[in-house]
Write a protein that binds this DNA or RNA. Structure first.
Lengths: 375, 375
DNA sequence: CAGCCTTCTGAATCAACGT
DNA sequence: TACGTTGATTCAGAAGGCT
């Protein structure tokens, strides 16, 4: 893994043409050019940490190659915003091409750039799912006392289109947050201490992201074996976390010294044991049990009486797995909905049976059935 | 105060031409037209809560079958992003004209619109000073379990230009925040209870903002006697808070029933003693640490072994913060209870990890985490 | 009256699958 | 692709009723 290579071909790859993805490698190139070498619809998730600031860094050049000067008048301001927008649009467009139809993209930024990025994401046809706030527990103070302490950064999570069926590991997130739904505001310290890559006491990269951030993102929105692309790889936080969580990764980075640091770091990041990577699954992932199976196996007898938790309605179980109540019949779901006058109803949790201990939902029988039949 | 009036003249007022500002009044008109009647450079601060352009789909039902009362008002409907951008640009342009050179503007929004608004703010020549996150202590959950709970809204604070000498009451903010610099993430409950305006038990406005939010904004960025304009006045939160804090206000609103409610409300809002203001602030959030946070930040690794104090049970930590032992899985609390056959269990004190000094409860890690992340 | 329980609600881009 | 079926899914706080 991790062989550094220069992307020589600019030729656009054909969709699913059998082009092998450069898995678990860093591509040393401009991000748009490197993405252009990847096939259509081949990436499960993209995490992007694009340059934030219009004035700093040599990232933004005018079309003629000259450096954008310090911004102090309206004309220059417009000029640099336009250049930034053009750059943003270019990489977002290419990113959308290589993303699978059900893939998602994450972008992180600050108020200097995130509004332009967010608008471009919408303009390119992505569908925003959430904006997430990374609250920094230890932000840099505002030394001059002229503004509020800038204590957060913003992430945007978007799917490729409105109707996409993206991955969201709801149960894993809820478990991670002590059985409460994971919210859109996340608290993490900034990257420091042992985690912060340094060379000769000097930090290698000015904006190294904490692994905790990527950990939560990948746990939430990818599955083991998925391919995660980071077009602004830097020192490879995305790669290190991906390896630990047994996801594949592809990094794109121009600067050799960042690449070198990333290589070392990722090689040192040991994958977790198989059992540790397992996360809580939603019931959806469990085998589906038809209600009739409970009758066939004798867990419920035809003629048995079911009722809702408050004993407002009673229904009789019939041999074919349908219920009958007040002259109406139907499946456990449909009859429950009909009786309540509701558009829908989960019959598994609505209907109860009575035993010595009192009322229990028939969902308990389903769990027993699963346990008994699980290979 | 508070005489409702229709703005009859569309004639653009001349800068500082002696035109009297309609102080402490609601102008019943379209926001751009009403602003056009105000003189150049006459307003100290603008607070704007424009339509969010939510683009909601069909009905949304809670797990209990009840229906969510969604924002479906005509004023929130736009044909396209382009139409929304045009609207945004128009009111931002007019707002900038009437703002004093050292005035500032606040705009609130959600991910549906805030990126477009922020980009437009930059394009119009404003200079962004901060983006502020309003963290909701009691947001609406994500009922279908499809995304992260949308638990915040975003505000943008901007001056008219980069060199402007705007008002920022640094000391007041620091005092308000227990002698720590006020950060960019603010915690407030959503507007409810007595504060929420209702008529016949029905909320008057679907998106009434909490007064606490406006308190902090006006305390931070205006002086007594300043003129605060709200071009999307709604039920007048801005007016009510301005009156309490002895600032002048101007509201712009098209809908008569909102105006009527706002009038009554503002008349009932008595100016406060200076000393009373501080007590209106919400208490600091109690640090609550989900077990998963220890894993994300690397204090505990997936695969790590935990045991009770007498080493009777052993469990393995998984990536999402669940534990696994003897074929059973669950949260630290739930698994502890299951293994002991107890109705409940405090996992923080039950489970231990081993280091060179012997067994220590994982609660020790929680204390370390709090020390490391306390803002 | 305190304490407990039930009900209601809030700026929400809120399902998946088989026929 | 349209439609019907299955069945998954909620947190904090206010308000009101009951013991």
């Amino acid at each position: 893994m991790g062989v550094m290579e220069r992307v020589s071909t600019r030729k656009k790859a054909v969709a699913d043409s059998g082009v092998r993805l450069p898995l678990d490698r860093i591509l040393m190139d401009d991000c748009v050019a490197a993405m252009a070498s990847l096939p259509d619809k081949s990436i499960d998730m993209i995490f992007a940490d694009p340059p934030y600031n219009l004035q700093l860094g040599g990232d933004l050049l005018r079309p003629d190659g000259s450096q954008v000067d310090a911004v102090d008048d309206d004309w220059d301001k417009f000029d640099s915003f336009a250049a930034y927008d053009k750059f943003t649009k270019a990489w977002l467009k290419e990113a959308r091409r290589i993303l699978k139809d059900n893939g998602t993209i994450w972008v992180i930024g600050s108020y200097h750039n995130i509004f332009r990025v967010g608008a471009a994401i919408q303009d390119e046809g992505y569908w925003i799912l959430n904006d997430i706030v990374w609250r920094k527990s230890n932000p840099m103070p505002n030394f001059k006392g002229t503004r509020f302490t800038n204590a957060h950064e913003t992430l945007i999570w978007a799917s490729k289109s409105e109707k996409a069926r993206y991955t969201f590991n709801y149960r894993a997130m809820k478990t991670l947050n002590d059985e409460l739904q994971m919210r859109s505001d996340w608290l993490f310290p900034i990257c420091g201490g042992q985690e912060r890559l340094k060379r000769g006491g000097v930090k290698v990269h000015p904006t190294q992201k904490p692994e905790a951030l990527l950990y939560r993102i990948m746990l939430a929105c990818t599955k083991p074996g998925d391919v995660v692309l980071d077009p602004f790889f830097g020192t490879g936080t995305t790669g290190a976390v991906a390896r630990r969580l047994k996801r594949h990764w592809i990094g794109i980075e121009r600067e050799a010294n960042y690449i070198e640091a990333a290589q070392e770091r990722i090689e040192a990041a040991l994958p977790l044991d198989e059992s540790a990577v397992v996360t809580m699954q939603s019931p959806k992932a469990q085998p589906k049990v038809p209600f009739g199976a409970l009758i066939e196996t004798g867990m419920l007898k035809p003629g048995a009486l079911l009722m809702d938790s408050k004993r407002r309605w009673r229904a009789t179980v019939r041999a074919d797995g349908s219920l009958e109540a007040e002259g109406a019949t139907g499946s456990i779901h449909k009859l429950g909905a009909t009786l309540q006058g509701a558009p829908s109803c989960n019959g598994w949790t609505f209907w109860h049976f009575e035993d010595a201990d009192g009322l229990k939902p028939i969902d308990a029988l389903r769990q027993n059935y699963i346990l008994a039949t699980e290979p």
